[in-house]
């Protein structure tokens, strides 16, 4: 079983600020981590490998520093890491990102299942996973909360919906995006961490994956951010800090006037 896990490095906190002068995000001093949702994808990939044998390859697109995200994935049990890093990739929106990752996967060639986290904690778009499968023209199942079985070239999975879940069967190769209900990510082992430290991470550029110049980076991105801003704070509310009786009385008084 050849498993590919696509991950993204994101800021550790969502408490980011905007520089009022340049109107860009202040990223200094903010630690980078693997997107929390991708941790479940990594864990599921490793579990599939442990059950069926094979290899887990983890891919990320990002700046050279994103290499440490790949090393962390290897410390958990992934076998290989591939970093897609090229100035030409800068400014990619979800369409260009999906294309770039898909081209890298085409270069890897052999794969049975691609696993992504359901979305990234910085952008929250949930578009890249389905985008990759569309570029590769393979079946996709989003919001997977359980892999029931993988047998005879098919995967049977549970897909979470607003009302419950659906059980779906799909031929391999396929792409799934996973939700946090699917597993509990493990903690790395010391041997894994040592292996990760020594691991050789391949870096692929646009030329290596034969990506067309017009489909990557800023040029390949139809969407364009024209403005970022901090949402206006809510007007200060009314706070009651008297005795419970007084506070409740005041609140009820207000609510009955204009709500109930």
């Amino acid at each position: 079983m050849n498993i590919i896990v696509c991950i993204k490095q994101v800021p550790e906190t969502t408490q980011v600020q905007i520089d009022p002068k340049t109107n860009t995000l202040i990223r200094e001093g903010v630690q980078s981590i693997i997107n929390p949702f991708d941790m479940y994808a990594i864990e599921e990939g490793i579990r599939i490998k442990e059950k069926f044998g094979g290899k887990v390859t983890v891919i990320t697109m990002g700046p050279p520093q994103a290499e440490c995200a790949l090393r962390e994935a290897i410390s958990l049990g992934c076998d290989e890491g591939i970093l897609l890093s090229d100035r030409a990739f800068a400014g990619s929106d979800t369409l260009a990102t999906g294309y770039t990752l898909a081209m890298a996967i085409k270069k890897i060639k052999e794969f049975d299942i691609i696993i992504c986290g359901k979305q990234a904690s910085d952008g929250d778009t949930a578009q890249v996973g389905p985008g990759i499968s569309a570029h590769l023209d393979i079946p996709q199942i989003t919001y997977v909360k359980k892999i029931e079985e993988i047998q005879d070239g098919h995967a049977t999975v549970e897909r979470m919906t607003e009302e419950g879940f659906e059980i779906l069967k799909t031929p391999l190769p396929c792409l799934i995006t996973v939700v946090k209900e699917i597993n509990e990510p493990r903690i790395p082992s010391l041997k894994g961490m040592m292996k990760a430290k020594k691991a050789v991470i391949a870096t692929w550029k646009a030329l290596d994956i034969e990506a067309e110049e017009y489909r990557i980076g800023l040029k390949g991105s139809p969407t364009q951010v024209v403005k970022i801003f901090t949402p206006p704070p809510r007007p200060k509310g009314q706070i009651f800090d008297g005795t419970p009786e007084e506070s409740v009385e005041k609140l009820i008084g207000i609510l009955k006037n204009h709500l109930i």
Binding site: I187, P188, L190, M193, M194, K197
Partner: peptide, 18 residues
């Protein structure tokens, strides 16, 4: 050493999470 730092990090993670 690098290894000892690794041990500390790993144990810190186990402590915080588990």
């Amino acid at each position: 050493t690098e290894n000892q730092k690794m041990i500390k990090d790993l144990c810190r993670q186990i402590t915080e999470e588990k």
